[in-house]
């Protein structure tokens, strides 16, 4: 059923710099998460992606990055799915 998604997430986490990843649906509900990505954050991630998408509605979906000293969180939306990848800096 969700084996494909599990496999995709495993592949993403193969990269040693990747700390975790998360995918959420249109409502901000977590579809799947792996590594250091709390499924409780899926709502926030979806909300951020939706808000940013409103800035320039006619351009491609942007990649949002949230960054601190040692981590970066990339957020992007595609159709109804929002994805987030946490990486070491």
């Amino acid at each position: 059923m969700e084996n494909n998604l599990d496999r995709v997430m495993e592949e993403i986490c193969l990269d040693p710099a990747v700390l975790g990843c998360l995918f959420a649906d249109q409502q901000g509900l977590c579809i799947g998460s792996k590594g250091q990505a709390s499924n409780e954050t899926s709502g926030y991630i979806t909300a951020i992606a939706n808000q940013v998408a409103k800035l320039e509605p006619n351009s491609k979906m942007p990649v949002v990055t949230l960054e601190n000293e040692n981590q970066i969180c990339m957020i992007q939306k595609a159709d109804t799915i929002t994805g987030a990848i946490y990486k070491k800096l």
Binding site: E2, R7, V8, E11, I12, A78, I81
Partner: peptide, 9 residues
Amino acid sequence: SLLAAVSAI
């Protein structure tokens, strides 16, 4: 990754 995830989902 997102494209792969979307198709998987």
